[in-house]
Structures are given as C-alpha cells and as structure tokens.
Amino acid sequence: MASIDLDKVLDKAWADKSPPEILAAPVGALKGVSDRDGELLQEAFGVKAVAGLAELKYVRRAQALAALGAAK
C-alpha cells in the first residue's frame, strides 16, 4: 500500500487524526479545500465528509479516465 504524507494533504488540525476520523471529517480538512468549497460540494453533490468525496462517482470516473491516459 502506498504511503501518504498526511502533512501534505491535510490541514494541520487533522494531520494527527486516525484514518476513520479523517474519513469522517468535513472536506475542508483537506489542504486547499476551503469551508466554502465544502459547502459547494455539499450543495452540488451531497458530499459532507472526506469519505463522501472519495466515493463520489464523478471523482471515480475522472480517476479511471486519468489512469487510462497515464497508461498510454
């Protein structure tokens, strides 16, 4: 399994939390995602937490397309 530097992907307040806590955290816990971005994600897609963003079908589709592009 790949290692992730949590300090690079999470706001400081969340970097020392457990994976279940991070997945339940609001998307604003991700570095670079503002509270307003989180509100917009909730309004547009019903995403409230990091896990919801990861499970969003549009994110998964975009990742699959990116993987196809990287394979060429």
Rank of each mutant, 00 (worst) to 15 (best):
A2G: 09
K31G: 05
A54G: 09
K48A: 13
A70H: 03
A29S: 08
G38M: 04
A49V: 08
P26V: 03
G28P: 00
D5A: 11
P20W: 06
V9P: 00
V27C: 05
I22H: 06
S34V: 01
A25D: 10
L68H: 11
A71K: 07
A49G: 04
G32N: 07
A44D: 07
L53S: 07
F45I: 02
A24Y: 01
S3H: 15
D35T: 07
S3W: 07
S3V: 15
L6F: 11
D35H: 02
G38R: 08
D11P: 01
K12Q: 13
D35S: 07
A13P: 03
V47T: 09
R61T: 13
A54T: 09
P26H: 03
Y58H: 14
P20S: 11
G28K: 12
A13H: 12
A44M: 06
P20G: 11
I4G: 02
L65S: 13
E55D: 13
E55Y: 08
G69H: 09
G69M: 12
M1L: 15
F45W: 01
A24Q: 06
D5Y: 04
L6A: 08
K17D: 12
A13N: 10
P20K: 11
D16R: 14
G32I: 04
V59N: 02
K17F: 12
G46I: 04
P26E: 08
G28Y: 04
E21Y: 06
S18E: 15
D7M: 06
K48T: 06
A29C: 06
K72H: 10
E39Y: 02
V27R: 01
R36D: 13
Q63V: 10
A66F: 07
A44T: 12
L40Q: 09
V59H: 02
G69N: 12
Y58V: 11
A51N: 10
R60L: 13
L10S: 09
A51V: 15
D7S: 11
A2R: 08
